[in-house]
Simulated assay, not measured.
Amino acid sequence: MWDGGKFTKYQQGEYTFTIRQFAPFKAIKVLGDLQKIISPALSGALSGLKKTPEADTNNFLSLAPILSDALEKLAYSLDGDKLQNAMEILLDKNYVSVEVVTKNGTKNFTQLDEGLINEIFTGRTFDLLALMVEVFRINFMDFSKLSSIPSGVREVFGEIKSPFREN
């Protein structure tokens, strides 16, 4: 098993998570599976952008039509099974761990398995979604290493990344 990759700490409330970058083959598989979920939302956002090309990215009301169209497309294409599948592939216990306090009071990182997910995130579904977004961001939103593609394409990727950076 691959044991490389960069580890990133992520603080969410009282919990500290470590997220390891996916191995290249896993990253491609995850991206392929997730694009079925993400593409409709991007399509909706682009159709909303066509309606309001002068949208100010610093003004929420200006972004409302874009977000509305993205969410509408996502609502038609996303169901509970797809969302659960996304959670399972993003929160792979071999790549995400959480700091827990042991019985003797020491802190150790342990794999984020289904039991810990239930323990930590029951009643906190949006925090679970935020962790999923963070895993996605760490694995797929670093466009600084795209040295072999044209700079114009890198700039487009940078624009896609900016809403994630703001949140």
Rank of each mutant, 00 (worst) to 15 (best):
L129T: 11
D79F: 02
K36V: 15
T52A: 05
S97A: 15
T106R: 12
N58D: 11
V153W: 05
D113I: 04
T125W: 10
P53S: 00
S162Q: 07
S144M: 05
E155R: 10
S68I: 00
R165F: 13
G123Y: 06
L49V: 03
D92Q: 02
I160F: 05
L131C: 01
V100C: 05
L67Y: 06
F60I: 13
S148D: 12
Q84R: 15
I66V: 11
F22I: 08
E114C: 06
L83R: 03
K26E: 15
T110R: 08
I89D: 10
T102D: 11
T102A: 07
D79W: 01
D69G: 05
A70H: 02
D92T: 02
A23G: 12
F22S: 09
L74M: 13
Q35T: 13
L61C: 12
I160D: 02
L61I: 11
V100W: 02
S162T: 09
I66G: 06
Q111P: 12
L71V: 09
K145H: 14
A130D: 14
T52H: 04
T57M: 09
D79T: 04
V30Q: 08
I120F: 02
P150R: 12
D56R: 08
N59Q: 09
G80V: 08
K50I: 07
E134H: 07
M141N: 13
N139F: 04
E88C: 05
I149G: 08
